[in-house]
Simulated scan of single mutants.
Amino acid sequence: MRRTLTFRALALAGLLAPAALIPAHATAASADVSAGDWLLRGGLTYISPKSDNGELTPADLSVDVGSSTRPTGSVTYMFTDNLGMELLVGIPFKHDISLEGDRVGYTRLLPPTLSLQYHFNTGSAFRPYLGAGVNYTHFFDTTTRGGLSDHRLRLDDSWGVAVQAGIDIALDDNWFLNTEVRWIDIESTARLDGDRIGTVEIDPWSFGMNVGYRF
Rank of each mutant, 00 (worst) to 15 (best):
1 M>I: 12
2 R>D: 13
8 R>Q: 14
10 L>T: 01
13 A>Q: 01
13 A>N: 02
13 A>M: 06
18 P>K: 08
23 P>I: 02
23 P>G: 07
24 A>K: 15
24 A>I: 07
24 A>Y: 02
26 A>W: 03
26 A>C: 12
27 T>I: 11
28 A>R: 14
30 S>Q: 07
34 S>H: 15
37 D>S: 06
39 L>M: 07
43 G>P: 03
43 G>E: 02
50 K>F: 09
51 S>H: 15
57 T>I: 04
58 P>H: 13
59 A>S: 14
60 D>E: 12
61 L>H: 11
63 V>T: 02
63 V>D: 07
64 D>A: 10
64 D>N: 05
66 G>F: 04
67 S>Q: 07
67 S>A: 11
69 T>V: 14
69 T>I: 14
72 T>K: 12
72 T>R: 09
73 G>H: 04
73 G>N: 00
74 S>H: 09
75 V>D: 04
76 T>I: 09
78 M>Q: 10
78 M>W: 06
79 F>D: 07
79 F>C: 00
80 T>G: 08
81 D>I: 05
81 D>M: 02
82 N>W: 00
84 G>R: 07
88 L>R: 08
88 L>T: 06
89 V>D: 03
91 I>W: 13
94 K>D: 12
96 D>C: 07
97 I>E: 05
99 L>A: 06
101 G>M: 09
101 G>K: 03
102 D>T: 15
102 D>I: 15
106 Y>D: 11
106 Y>C: 06
107 T>Q: 01
108 R>E: 09
111 P>V: 03
112 P>M: 02
112 P>Y: 02
115 S>N: 13
116 L>D: 05
116 L>E: 04
117 Q>E: 06
120 F>W: 05
120 F>P: 08
121 N>Q: 09
122 T>K: 05
124 S>N: 06
125 A>Y: 15
127 R>Q: 11
130 L>F: 05
132 A>Y: 08
137 T>D: 00
140 F>P: 08
140 F>V: 15
142 T>G: 05
149 S>N: 13
150 D>M: 10
151 H>G: 04
151 H>C: 03
153 L>K: 01
158 S>V: 05
158 S>Y: 00
158 S>H: 03
160 G>M: 10
161 V>L: 14
162 A>G: 14
162 A>D: 12
163 V>C: 10
164 Q>R: 14
167 I>Q: 12
170 A>E: 01
172 D>W: 08
173 D>A: 10
173 D>W: 05
173 D>Q: 11
174 N>A: 15
175 W>K: 14
176 F>I: 04
176 F>V: 01
178 N>D: 11
178 N>Y: 09
179 T>N: 12
179 T>A: 10
180 E>H: 15
181 V>H: 12
181 V>A: 06
184 I>H: 01
186 I>G: 04
186 I>W: 01
190 A>C: 08
191 R>N: 14
192 L>N: 02
193 D>Q: 12
194 G>W: 15
201 E>T: 13
204 P>S: 06
205 W>S: 01
205 W>D: 07
206 S>G: 08
206 S>D: 11
206 S>K: 06
208 G>Y: 11
211 V>T: 10
211 V>N: 02
215 F>W: 06
215 F>S: 08
